[in-house]
Design a protein around this nucleic acid. Structure first.
Lengths: 182, 182
DNA sequence: GTCTATACATAGATAGAC
DNA sequence: GTCTATCTATGTATAGAC
C-alpha cells in the first residue's frame, strides 16, 4: 500500500508475501473492504496510543508535533483517504479518528496555554491544532512527492513557536513506527 | 475519479460516459497513464490561471485564500497524489506544480506584507503560505470525509487575519470550477 | 475517427477436499 | 487452517475492417 498505492493491494499479492494462497485472505477477512478497515483500525490505534502518551509527556506540544511531522504511519493516511471515497464504513471510521485526534491536540494546546498564562482568545487551541496538523500533513505529503520548498523554514518557525509557549525541550517517549519509509 | 477514486477510473467507464467504445481512449491517449497525466495538466493549468489572476486582484490575499478554500479542483489533488505514488512522470509533474503554487503564494504574501509595511521577519511569507495552504487542504479533505471539527473557527480566524494585513475586502474574479462537488 | 474482435492479465470471491 | 479448483467480472491494450 505504501509502495504502490492502495489500488495495487490485492489478496493475491498479500498472500504471496506471506507465502500462502490468496483464498486465505478471504478466510481471515472475508472481503478486501474488511481487510482495509482492519488495517486502518490497527494503524489508527497505534497512533492513538502515541497521542495519549504525548499528553503525559513533560513537553506535550513538542512531542505531539514530533509525532505529526515524523509520521510514518500517517502517509498511509493519504491512501486511506483516497480509498475511503466510496467506502462508507471506512469513511466514517476515518472521520471519527480525525475528530478524536483533533480533540486531543486541542486539549493539550488548551492546557499548555493555560498553564503558561497565555490568553487563549487570540489563538484558539482548535485553530492552532488545525494549523499545526495541516502544516505537518502538507510537509509530509510534499516530501513524499520529492519537493521541500519552504519546509525547513516552516519547521524551524513552528519549533521556535513551540519553544516560546512550552519552553525548549525534546519530544519524548514516542512509540516506534513499525513500518519504515523508504 | 472524484466520485469513486482513481482506481475506479477505467477506459471502459470513460468511454461509456462518452457513449463510445473503450478502445478510443487508447486511440486518443495511448495508455491510462498518459490520460491521467493529461487530466492533471489540464486541471493544473486552470488552477494556475486562477492563481495568476489572483495576483492582479485588488485583494490578492483574500482571492488566493478563496481559491484555496473553495477549491473544487484540488480535491482531485488527493487522488493524484495517491495515484502518483509509483508513476514517476506524474509524481514529477505534481511536485513541479506544488512548487510553482508555493512560490506564487509566497510572492503575493511578500508583496502585500511589504506594501503594508509589516515586517517580514516575524512571519516569513513562505511559512505563511504553507500554513494557509495546509489549513485549506486539511479542511477540504476533512469536509469530504464528513467532519468539520474546528473548521468554522479556523476559517474565521484566518479571514480575520487577512482582513488585518490586507484590509477587509471580497475575493474577486475567480474563474469558475468546471466540476461540481456533489 | 470509430468500430468489431480478440488476447491476455488480474481481480474478488466461493465450494469443497483434506 | 490451508489447499485445489473454479466462476465471473473487469481491466489494459492491440490488430485490422470500415
Amino acid at each position: 500500500m505504501h509502495e504502490e498505492g492502495y489500488a495495487a493491494v490485492s489478496s493475491r499479492k498479500i498472500a504471496s508475501k506471506a507465502g500462502l494462497k490468496s483464498q486465505l485472505v478471504h478466510y481471515y477477512f472475508r472481503s478486501m473492504d474488511d481487510l482495509f478497515l482492519a488495517l486502518f483500525q490497527r494503524v489508527e490505534e497505534q497512533q492513538f496510543q502515541r497521542l495519549t502518551q504525548a499528553i503525559a509527556a513533560k513537553t506535550p506540544l513538542h512531542t505531539l508535533w514530533k509525532i505529526s511531522i515524523d509520521a510514518q504511519g500517517p502517509w498511509l493516511n493519504k491512501e486511506f483517504i483516497a480509498l475511503a471515497t466510496h467506502r462508507e464504513h471506512l469513511r466514517k471510521e476515518i472521520a471519527r479518528a480525525a475528530e478524536r485526534t483533533r480533540r486531543i491536540y486541542a486539549a493539550v494546546l488548551s492546557r499548555v496555554l493555560e498553564e503558561r498564562g497565555l490568553e487563549r482568545g487570540a489563538w484558539p487551541p482548535i485553530v492552532l491544532s488545525i494549523l499545526l496538523d495541516g502544516a505537518s500533513r502538507l510537509i509530509n505529503s510534499e516530501a513524499a512527492l520529492g519537493t521541500s520548498e519552504g519546509h525547513a523554514e516552516t519547521i524551524a518557525f513552528i519549533e521556535h513557536y513551540l519553544d516560546q509557549i512550552e519552553g525548549p525541550g525534546p519530544a519524548e517517549g514516542i512509540m516506534p513506527y513499525p513500518l519504515k519509509p523508504e
